[in-house]
Each structure stands twice: as structure tokens, then as C-alpha cells.
Simulated assay, not measured.
Amino acid sequence: MLNTETPNVLHTELDTYATADLAAALIDDQLNAVQAVRAAAPQIAAAIDAALPRIEAGGRLVYVGAGTSGRLGVLDGVELLPTFSWPDERAISLIAGGKQAMFVAVEGAEDDTEQGAIDIRELHLNQHDVVLLIAASGATPYVLGALQAARASGALTVGFANNPDAPVTRCADIGITLNTGSEIISGSTRLKAGTSQKIALNTFSSGLMVKLHKVYGNLMVDVKPTNIKLLRRTVSLTMHATGKDEQTCRKVLEECDFHVKTAIVAIQNQVSVATAEKLLAHYQGDVRKALQAIG
């Protein structure tokens, strides 16, 4: 029996717990998710380093999963645009059963190995693409079909599973095992197995974006202001990075379509927005190098 399916021996009378004890037990068990991801940190780092040159060469991130794992992949992918201005067409999510499976369980979809392969082949992957294959069991047929097709295309494959020695981690170029063990509600991998996947995907994608110079210090300077909240954030980020007042920062931001990177370089180097844009282009979007070029 898979670790994730093994009945938990610590809470065999969970249904009798007082509400406060029930909530505490459910929360405390989530701590194991953090520990599982921490143990996999070297493999996650290796995946970031392997993905970086491919993404720099124009590759795409492709998330593949079924059920909770598939939904977590979709979530990680769609958040890259507002957070890092990552183009939607370079963050693609495949979930067994199609888009409708985000909201309603599609019976039998995860068991279709061939559909996983078909969905991948339709993307016409190449050696620059990076495919993230997520499965708590590590043996979901849809995901394994996608894995086989992705490997045949020459794309980098990274497998995430919550059971040791799982097919998806064993057969991928880089395997990341998040060994969360048995669930407090036996077999419900939407609990700490899902939490560990969320942390691992956040770590991978955020780490990759840092390496792509979409962060300056620890500021998300490539934010896409798609709403009023994020528009305000561009101002506060620019103020924090430059030490200048709101009026100064807002004026420059308005000149560069609220692109924080450009505003920082223009203000700090005391150059025009056009010059700041050229500096950033020359240094592949690296704010620190663009500042050092003149400073």
C-alpha cells in the first residue's frame, strides 16, 4: 500500500475529537508537509538550475496533473503573470479531464494514459520546454502518459510525487519526492500531500523567476499591475527601492507604464525612461547590473 493511502495510526478516533482538538490535529499534521519539502530542497534546486537555461532560451513551463495535483499546477501557472509578468502563453497547464475538471471531478479522466500523451503532443514541445508532472501517488496514468510523450519531445521533465520510488519521479529527468506519509484522514491527499505540492511548486517557480532577474533584492519588481491593488504596489515597491517620495515615483512610473524595474533604474541612475529600458535590455532585465553600469 502506498504511504499516502496507509491509514494514519495517530488519530484513529478522529471523529470523536472535540472541535478545538480536531482543528489542532488537522493543522499540526500540515507541519509534515513543510518538512517533506525541506528534505527535497536539493532536488528542487537542481530542477531550477536545469530549467533556467531552457527558459532563458525561450522555453515554456508546462504543468500536468489530475485532480488536486492538476488544480495546484493550474494555480501556480496562472499566478506567474501578475506576480512576475510571465506571459500566459509560456505557462501552460494540463489537467486530466480538461478545463472543466478545475471545478467538477471528471470520472475516469486520470486513468487515461493515452489522453495524457495526446495533450502533450498537441503542444509541440521542444528541448527548451520544461514539463512539471505532479501526482500524489506518483503513478497517475494520465500523468505518466504525458511524461512519456514529454520525454520523447526532448523537453526537460520534472516529476513530483508523495511516495518514494514512484514511476513519475523514477522516470522523469529530475524526480522530487515529497514524502508526506499517511494522511490524518486516510487517503485524502488534498491535505498535507497537496500542501507539500503547493509549497514545492511555489518554491520552484519563484526560485526560477528570481534567477530570471524578476526580483531585485527581495522585491517583485516585474509585477504586472492588473488591478488597483497591484497598481498601488508598484508605487510602494518603487518608493522602497529608491527611497524617493510617492510623487516622484508615481511620475516616473506613469512614463513607463508602471514598470517597476524601469522606474527604479531611471530614478536611481538619473536617466530617462528610454535609457533605463535600454540598460535593462542590455543586461537581460537585471536591475542590479543596470544600476552598477552607471552607478
Rank of each mutant, 00 (worst) to 15 (best):
A136H: 10
D88T: 14
S137L: 07
I134V: 15
A66V: 03
L81D: 04
L80M: 14
R90Y: 01
V130R: 07
A51M: 07
S153A: 15
Y142D: 07
G65S: 03
D129P: 03
G59E: 11
Y63L: 04
E89L: 09
A51W: 06
Y142P: 05
P87E: 11
G77W: 02
T68P: 07
G145M: 11
G70S: 02
G154L: 10
D129A: 03
A101D: 00
E114N: 15
A136R: 05
A150E: 02
S153Y: 05
R54H: 14
A101N: 00
V62A: 02
L52N: 11
V143F: 10
V64Q: 05
L52F: 07
P53C: 06
G145K: 09
A109L: 10
L72D: 02
A96N: 07
A109R: 13
A105M: 08
Q100R: 14
P87Y: 06
N126C: 13
H128D: 10
Q100F: 00
T68I: 02
A136K: 07
V130A: 03
E89T: 12
V131E: 06
Y63E: 05
G58M: 09
T140E: 12
V74R: 09
D119I: 09
M102I: 13
G98L: 02
P82Q: 09
A96Y: 06
G73K: 10
A152M: 08
I95T: 04
G77E: 04
I55S: 02
G154E: 09
G59W: 10
G77M: 10
P82H: 11
G108K: 12
S69Y: 02
V104I: 12
A109G: 11
D119G: 08
V74H: 07
Q148T: 15
V62K: 08
I118P: 04
G77N: 07
K99F: 00
L132T: 04
G77C: 08
F103H: 13
W86M: 08
L75K: 07
D119R: 15
R151A: 00
I120P: 05
G98Y: 06
L123C: 08
L132N: 12
I95V: 12
D111W: 11
G108Q: 11
G98N: 06
Q148P: 00
E114L: 15
L61V: 08
L72Q: 09
G67S: 07
T83N: 11
W86G: 09
A135M: 07
A150W: 05
P87F: 08
